[in-house]
Measured scan of single mutants.
Amino acid sequence: MRVFPVYAPKLIVKHARIFLTGVIWVKDLGRLEFEKGRFLLPRKSLPKVKQAILELNELIEAQN
């Protein structure tokens, strides 16, 4: 598990694309899981977490 002390979308996306499957922890967002290079949306999450995951997945799609 990698810990990101700040929310840096480009760096987080780079990590997810390299490792494809895993878990990261982002300060103020908490634990985020990714599989096959995409972030998974938890069943229950705060609106800011949901927005961050959608933003990260959009960045991943834009890079493909």
Rank of each mutant, 00 (worst) to 15 (best):
36 K>E: 12
14 K>F: 09
28 D>Y: 14
26 V>H: 01
21 T>Y: 05
46 L>A: 12
49 V>N: 03
60 I>G: 04
61 E>A: 13
32 L>G: 02
63 Q>W: 12
33 E>Q: 14
27 K>F: 13
14 K>G: 09
35 E>Q: 13
50 K>P: 03
21 T>Q: 13
59 L>Y: 07
5 P>E: 15
29 L>W: 04
29 L>S: 00
31 R>M: 05
58 E>N: 11
57 N>F: 04
2 R>F: 15
46 L>Y: 13
34 F>V: 04
28 D>R: 14
19 F>R: 08
2 R>P: 15
30 G>N: 02
30 G>W: 02
33 E>I: 14
34 F>N: 02
4 F>L: 03
63 Q>N: 09
44 K>V: 05
30 G>L: 02
58 E>H: 09
11 L>A: 11
46 L>F: 12
4 F>N: 00
48 K>S: 06
18 I>F: 14
26 V>K: 00
2 R>V: 15
61 E>W: 07
44 K>E: 05
47 P>V: 12
12 I>C: 01
3 V>L: 01
55 E>M: 05
35 E>I: 12
22 G>I: 04
25 W>L: 13
7 Y>F: 05
61 E>C: 10
37 G>K: 04
51 Q>G: 10
58 E>C: 11
38 R>A: 09
58 E>R: 07
16 A>Q: 02
54 L>D: 07
36 K>Q: 11
28 D>K: 15
1 M>C: 15
61 E>Q: 10
12 I>N: 02
30 G>S: 01
39 F>E: 15
38 R>M: 12
35 E>M: 11
55 E>F: 09
27 K>E: 15
58 E>S: 11
33 E>L: 10
16 A>R: 00
6 V>R: 06
11 L>H: 08
26 V>N: 00
26 V>G: 01
62 A>D: 10
46 L>V: 12
35 E>C: 13
24 I>Q: 00
27 K>G: 13
21 T>S: 13
18 I>L: 07
39 F>P: 03
42 P>D: 05
49 V>S: 04
20 L>Q: 10
56 L>H: 00
10 K>G: 14
64 N>K: 10
8 A>R: 08
40 L>A: 04
60 I>C: 06
1 M>L: 06
25 W>Y: 15
5 P>A: 13
32 L>H: 01
15 H>D: 02
13 V>K: 01
45 S>K: 09
21 T>R: 10
48 K>V: 06
63 Q>Y: 08
30 G>K: 01
31 R>Y: 11
41 L>Q: 13
32 L>Y: 02
14 K>V: 11
47 P>F: 10
6 V>I: 11
25 W>C: 15
39 F>Q: 07
54 L>V: 08
52 A>Q: 03
27 K>S: 14
44 K>Q: 06
10 K>P: 12
42 P>C: 10
41 L>D: 07
2 R>D: 15
18 I>V: 12
13 V>W: 02
56 L>A: 00
61 E>L: 09
50 K>I: 05
5 P>G: 08
11 L>S: 10
23 V>A: 04
6 V>D: 04
56 L>D: 00
13 V>Q: 04
2 R>C: 15
15 H>M: 04
57 N>M: 03
4 F>E: 01
12 I>F: 00
62 A>P: 04
5 P>Y: 15
32 L>N: 03
16 A>I: 10
30 G>P: 01
53 I>C: 09
40 L>N: 08
7 Y>D: 01
38 R>P: 03
53 I>R: 00
57 N>S: 02
63 Q>E: 14
14 K>S: 11
26 V>A: 02
28 D>M: 12
62 A>G: 09
8 A>Q: 08
43 R>M: 06
45 S>C: 12
33 E>S: 14
11 L>P: 07
64 N>S: 12
3 V>P: 07
1 M>R: 14
59 L>N: 04
40 L>W: 05
59 L>C: 06
4 F>T: 01
55 E>V: 06
52 A>M: 05
37 G>D: 03
50 K>N: 06
37 G>V: 06
28 D>H: 14
3 V>S: 13
36 K>G: 11
6 V>K: 07
48 K>I: 10
54 L>K: 12
35 E>K: 13
11 L>I: 07
60 I>F: 08
61 E>M: 10
27 K>I: 10
54 L>C: 09
17 R>I: 13
38 R>N: 11
41 L>I: 11
20 L>A: 12
41 L>H: 09
28 D>E: 10
41 L>K: 13
15 H>K: 01
29 L>M: 09
55 E>C: 06
15 H>F: 08
43 R>L: 09
44 K>D: 08
29 L>H: 03
63 Q>G: 10
48 K>W: 06
22 G>F: 03
56 L>T: 00
24 I>T: 01
17 R>G: 13
19 F>H: 09
62 A>I: 10
44 K>H: 07
54 L>I: 08
33 E>G: 11
27 K>V: 14
19 F>W: 15
22 G>C: 05
4 F>A: 01
53 I>D: 00
58 E>I: 07
54 L>Y: 11
28 D>P: 13
39 F>I: 05
2 R>W: 15
9 P>V: 03
42 P>F: 09
44 K>N: 06
57 N>I: 03
27 K>C: 15
33 E>C: 14
42 P>N: 07
10 K>C: 14
45 S>L: 07
4 F>K: 01
8 A>D: 09
16 A>V: 12
58 E>W: 10
11 L>T: 06
27 K>N: 15
41 L>R: 11
64 N>H: 09
61 E>I: 11
35 E>Y: 10
45 S>R: 14
8 A>V: 11
58 E>K: 09
20 L>I: 10
14 K>H: 13
25 W>R: 10
43 R>V: 09
26 V>W: 05
22 G>V: 04
51 Q>D: 08
13 V>F: 03
4 F>H: 02
18 I>G: 06
40 L>M: 11
12 I>T: 02
32 L>W: 01
11 L>M: 07
27 K>T: 15
20 L>R: 08
38 R>W: 10
52 A>G: 02
6 V>C: 15
64 N>Q: 09
23 V>Q: 14
59 L>I: 09
17 R>S: 11
49 V>H: 06
34 F>L: 05
39 F>L: 03
23 V>K: 15
3 V>R: 12
21 T>M: 07
46 L>Q: 13
38 R>C: 12
33 E>W: 15
36 K>V: 05
12 I>M: 05
48 K>R: 09
46 L>K: 15
59 L>H: 06
2 R>Y: 15
49 V>G: 02
45 S>W: 12
58 E>P: 00
56 L>W: 01
54 L>R: 13
15 H>V: 07
19 F>D: 10
60 I>V: 08
61 E>G: 07
50 K>H: 07
1 M>G: 15
16 A>Y: 02
56 L>C: 03
8 A>L: 11
60 I>M: 12
47 P>W: 11
58 E>A: 10
2 R>H: 15
10 K>V: 13
38 R>T: 09
45 S>T: 11
21 T>A: 10
9 P>Y: 01
25 W>Q: 07
5 P>D: 15
29 L>F: 07
16 A>D: 00
36 K>S: 11
55 E>I: 05
8 A>F: 12
35 E>L: 11
52 A>S: 06
9 P>M: 03
9 P>K: 03
53 I>K: 00
43 R>N: 08
31 R>S: 03
49 V>F: 06
10 K>D: 11
28 D>I: 05
62 A>F: 08
2 R>L: 15
3 V>N: 14
55 E>P: 00
63 Q>F: 08
3 V>H: 15
15 H>G: 01
49 V>T: 06
4 F>S: 01
40 L>S: 05
23 V>H: 11
33 E>N: 14
41 L>C: 12
26 V>R: 00
45 S>Q: 09
23 V>L: 13
41 L>T: 11
64 N>M: 10
11 L>E: 10
15 H>C: 06
46 L>H: 08
35 E>P: 02
42 P>I: 05
10 K>I: 12
31 R>T: 05
34 F>M: 06
54 L>G: 09
46 L>N: 10
22 G>L: 03
24 I>A: 04
9 P>C: 03
24 I>C: 08
37 G>Y: 04
11 L>N: 05
3 V>I: 02
45 S>A: 10
8 A>T: 13
52 A>T: 06
2 R>A: 14
28 D>N: 14
45 S>P: 08
64 N>G: 09
16 A>S: 05
17 R>V: 11
5 P>F: 15
24 I>Y: 02
16 A>W: 03
44 K>Y: 10
39 F>W: 01
2 R>S: 07
57 N>Y: 02
38 R>D: 03
43 R>Y: 05
56 L>P: 03
33 E>Y: 15
13 V>M: 07
24 I>L: 07
7 Y>I: 02
54 L>H: 14
59 L>K: 05
18 I>T: 10
49 V>I: 15
62 A>W: 09
40 L>I: 08
63 Q>C: 13
22 G>D: 02
29 L>T: 04
1 M>Y: 00
36 K>M: 09
30 G>D: 03
33 E>K: 15
63 Q>I: 13
10 K>E: 13
49 V>D: 00
25 W>V: 05
64 N>F: 04
61 E>S: 10
49 V>C: 06
4 F>Y: 03
37 G>R: 04
13 V>G: 05
54 L>N: 08
32 L>M: 14
